[in-house]
């Protein structure tokens, strides 16, 4: 079974369309509603998704791991991480799955910097300031070398799903996953995916929170 995990927090305006667009490309769409205060859950259900709802907002990493727990329970063979705000394109799913299978890899990371249109699509502050800083932080915390670690488009095989357990509730999971890939010696590939920016996304303050979470994570286990 190929399951798409869509973490969503107050995404009522986009989640329905995202679920409908995903359904022809995967066997099951699971929306993890991370304690939304709007109608995210009901719109996702109406669109045809399975919905798990967190009683409290716990962060994107926590929502993804909840999806992982469910995917393990139903014995999913492939898992796709896909954002609920409609920034990713479903046209990237089939080529990515083929690339993952052909490379016999365990994890696939999407990269917006590997596309030809990267310069035009990615804001310059992300390209020249946030991305280099994020890469330095990721390397310091033991991640594999990626051009776009903080891209939410990822695919896991069953092996990776059984091996990787996300412990960071917030956005630090984006640094944790590449670190766990390296730690467990999993095979990974990076493929170009298109990203449409509706909002700016993560800002510098979010980056500082990520570093704080990564540091504290080192001392709390």
């Amino acid at each position: 079974m190929f399951i798409a995990i869509v973490p969503a927090y107050n995404e009522a305006s986009t989640v329905g369309a995202v679920v409908k667009s995903l359904l022809p490309h995967v066997d099951r769409v699971l929306v993890v509603d991370d304690g939304s205060t709007d109608q995210t859950s009901s719109f996702a259900k109406e669109a045809g998704a399975f919905v798990i709802r967190h009683g409290l907002n716990r962060g994107q990493g926590a929502a993804l791991e909840t999806g992982h727990v469910y995917a393990r329970q139903i014995g999913a063979e492939y898992v796709l991480h896909f954002d609920a705000d409609g920034q990713f394109s479903v046209d990237d799913i089939a080529p990515s799955l083929s690339a993952l299978q052909e490379a016999n890899a365990d994890v696939l990371f999407g990269s917006r910097y590997k596309t030809r249109m990267a310069k035009a699509r990615v804001p310059w502050t992300k390209r020249y300031i946030l991305r280099p800083l994020a890469q330095i932080v990721d390397r310091l915390f033991g991640a594999v070398k990626l051009s776009d670690a903080h891209n939410g488009f990822r695919m896991f095989t069953k092996k990776a799903l059984d091996t990787i357990s996300i412990s960071h509730d917030g956005m630090a999971h984006a640094s944790e996953i590449p670190a766990l890939v390296k730690k467990h010696g999993l095979l990974y590939i990076e493929v170009p995916v298109s990203v449409t920016y509706h909002e700016y996304g993560q800002r510098m303050v979010s980056g500082i929170v990520v570093v704080k979470d990564l540091l504290l994570g080192r001392f709390s286990r």
Binding site: I52, R53, H54, G55, R58, A62, T66
Partner: peptide, 9 residues
């Protein structure tokens, strides 16, 4: 929260 959410589902 996770155990509760999955259990409810």
């Amino acid at each position: 929260v996770r155990d509760d959410a999955i259990g409810t589902m």
